[in-house]
């Protein structure tokens, strides 16, 4: 067996940067990463075109008054789909390792464990963020094209912030998925919990709450807070947080779930 050349002189310590590189390799070296991101992006932008067209029709028929808020709402409606796909992708970053047994090899290489989770979060955010930004910009532009003469412009008040908010929302959902995956470890369980907590509960909760309670509670749900980040006001039926506050709430969910995942990753047998 040949030796690892010159290993006495080279520093082979595990560092955060090295673990991030490793996680990036894991992410990029599986074709499904790119297939999934491309498919979700195209579908989302396609939806934005359809919603933009529908918005244009509604204005023509006088159902809706043209406004930047309505135009933005139509543009970003499809982001929920993108966020769902990205969230499931985030779940799989962790549960895929447990399902395959790769987690054993990963934790042999990084027995301090936590850097693996942080590096996964960084690599995940790094791959989702640019795609999400592109999807967000493209969704807005194509939606306005299909809306016709009443579409909003990139320079309209609040629009740049809404575009950034719409790009940040899927990143947060991906990280929430990662946290849930780290906590539950099983793919089916984690995806079920992710979908139930983020999509089903927000849809069902209003039926159980008075209007007053809805106004007090709904805005703190992760999906609703996410939507608040790209909302330009006066559009939806639900009372929303201010965009900055919504971002803080969403970041809070991400931190709590990742911290929970980290604590369990550290404590449990792998």
């Amino acid at each position: 067996m040949t030796a690892l050349a010159g290993h006495d002189r080279v520093d082979y310590r595990v560092t955060m940067g090295r673990v991030v590189r490793s996680e990036w390799t894991k992410l990029r070296s599986v074709r499904s990463t790119w297939v999934m991101l491309a498919a979700a992006a195209l579908l989302t932008v396609g939806l934005a075109a359809a919603f933009g067209y529908g918005y244009g029709q509604q204005i023509h028929s006088g159902e809706v008054h043209p406004s930047t808020a309505e135009a933005a709402s139509a543009a970003f409606l499809g982001l929920d789909l993108f966020a769902l796909v990205v969230g499931v992708f985030g779940v799989m970053r962790m549960t895929g390792e447990y399902g395959s047994g790769l987690i054993g090899a990963s934790l042999l290489a990084v027995p301090r464990r936590l850097p693996v989770l942080w590096a996964k979060a960084l690599a995940l955010a790094a791959v989702i963020a640019p795609v999400a930004l592109a999807v967000s910009v493209a969704s807005f532009l194509i939606s306005q094209v299909f809306a016709g003469s009443h579409g909003a412009g990139l320079g309209d008040p609040g629009v740049p912030r809404a575009i950034l908010g719409a790009a940040a929302y899927p990143v947060a959902m991906g990280l929430l998925g990662l946290g849930i995956g780290a906590i539950l470890r099983h793919t089916a369980a984690a995806i079920t919990v992710f979908a139930a907590a983020l999509l089903v509960i927000p849809a069902l909760l209003p039926a159980a709450l008075s209007q007053q309670a809805q106004d007090a509670v709904m805005k703190y749900l992760p999906v609703v807070a996410g939507q608040a980040m790209f909302d330009l006001g006066e559009a939806g039926p639900v009372r929303l947080l201010a965009p900055g506050a919504a971002a803080v709430v969403l970041a809070g969910y991400v931190i709590v779930l990742l911290a929970g995942g980290a604590a369990l990753l550290q404590r449990r047998d792998a």
């Binding site: 690892l4 080279v10 520093d11 082979y12 310590r13 595990v14 560092t15 090295r18 673990v19 590189r21 490793s22 996680e23 390799t25 894991k26 070296s29 790769l102 090899a105 990963s106 290489a109 990084v110």
Partner: peptide, 13 residues
């Protein structure tokens, strides 16, 4: 190869 590469990169191998 990519599997091993990812493991190697944690140590800068």
């Amino acid at each position: 190869r990519n599997h091993l590469l990812a493991l190697a990169q944690t140590h800068g191998i």
